[in-house]
Write a protein that binds this DNA or RNA. Structure first.
Lengths: 155, 155
DNA sequence: CTACAAGCTGAAGCGACTAGAGGTTCAAGG
DNA sequence: CCTTGAACCTCTAGTCGCTTCAGCTTGTAG
C-alpha cells in the first residue's frame, strides 16, 4: 500500500486544499461525513491524495458553490459512480435546486425593496429624524409583504 | 405582581405565538438569549405576556423576516429603547444589511443562470443522456464564474 | 373531579463548517 | 546526522437560529 513510487505521485492535504480552494479543515470534515473517501496514509499517518480525490473534491466544491446541500451532493456522487440510471435523478435534483434558488431570489428582491423603502425614510443625518427605521420595523402594517407568502419560508 | 385584574389582561405563550406568528419554542428561545424580556408568571410558573411584549416580539419577527441577524436586532432594540441617538446607527445597520441582500441576489442570479444551463443540457429523458449534469459538475472549466469573485462569499 | 391540552425545564440535535488545544511528522538547512 | 519549524494529526467545542425531545406540571372545559 505504501509503495514508494505511488507515494511520490500523491499530495498532502495542504496541497489538495490549495489546488481545490477547499480549506484543510473542511476536507477532513468531508472525509468524516463520508463525502470524500479516506485517502492513503504515510507511515507517519498523514493523508496523501491521488488524482481521483482531487477530481472528486473539485466536484464537491463546485456543487457546494452552486448551493447544493451535502445530502444532494452525496446522491449526485453516488449517481456519478454508477453510470447506469443517473440522468433522471440528477436532473430532478438540479431542477428542484433551481426552483429553490429562484424562490430565494424572489424573496430577497422583495426584501431589497422594503429595505430600500425603510432606509430611505431616514437619511442618517444627526437631527430631525426620530427614527423612521425603527418605527417601520415596529409597525408591520406599512410592510408590502404584510401577511403575504414570504414569512416562514426561512423555516 | 400577580394581581388578579392584571393577569386577566395578559396572554399565555400559545396566544402570543398565534398573534405574532412566532413559534412557542422560538419565543422561549428569544427570552433565553435576552431578546425578549422575561414576562410575568402565574402562581404555577407559566408565562403571561402583556401588550409591550406583543409589540416587541412583532418588531423582532418583522426584523427577522427582513433577514436581520439576532445581533443586529439586539442593537436595533436597544436603540428603540433609548430614543436619544438612534438614527445614525439604525440607518447604518439597515444600509449594511441592504448591501448584504443585494450581494446575495447577485450571487443567486449567477447561480440561477448556471443551473439553467446545466439542467437544460439534459432533459431528464431515460435514454441517450450520459449524464451532462454530472459532467458539468465535474468539469469546472465550463463554468461562467470560473475563478470569478463568487466562490468563497459563503464563508 | 377528571381528562387532556397547554405549559414548563434542560439537554441534545441540525447543517456545514470553524477554531482551538495539544501533540506528531516531514523536509530542508546547517 | 541533527535541529528547526511548518505542516500535519486527533478530538472537542463553538457558531447561528432555531427545533425536537423527554419527562414532568398546570390550567381549564365538561
Amino acid at each position: 500500500m505504501l509503495d514508494r513510487k505511488k507515494l511520490e505521485r500523491l499530495v498532502p492535504i495542504g496541497a489538495l486544499a490549495e489546488q481545490t480552494g477547499v480549506r484543510v479543515e473542511t476536507i477532513r470534515y468531508y472525509e468524516q461525513v463520508d463525502l470524500l473517501p479516506p485517502p492513503e496514509r504515510t507511515e507517519g499517518n498523514q493523508r496523501r491524495y491521488g488524482r481521483r480525490h482531487v477530481e472528486r473534491l473539485a466536484f464537491i466544491k463546485h456543487a457546494r458553490d452552486l448551493g447544493f446541500s451535502v445530502e444532494s451532493i452525496r446522491t449526485l456522487l453516488k449517481l456519478s459512480d454508477s453510470p447506469d440510471l443517473p440522468c433522471d435523478q440528477a436532473h430532478a435534483i438540479s431542477v428542484a435546486h433551481l426552483g429553490d434558488v429562484r424562490h430565494k431570489i424572489a424573496r430577497l428582491r422583495s426584501l431589497e425593496k422594503e429595505l430600500e423603502r425603510i432606509a430611505s425614510t431616514c437619511s442618517g443625518g444627526v437631527s430631525a429624524c426620530d427614527c423612521a427605521i425603527i418605527e417601520a420595523l415596529a409597525d408591520h402594517t406599512q410592510c408590502a409583504h404584510h401577511e403575504g407568502g414570504l414569512a416562514g419560508s426561512r423555516r
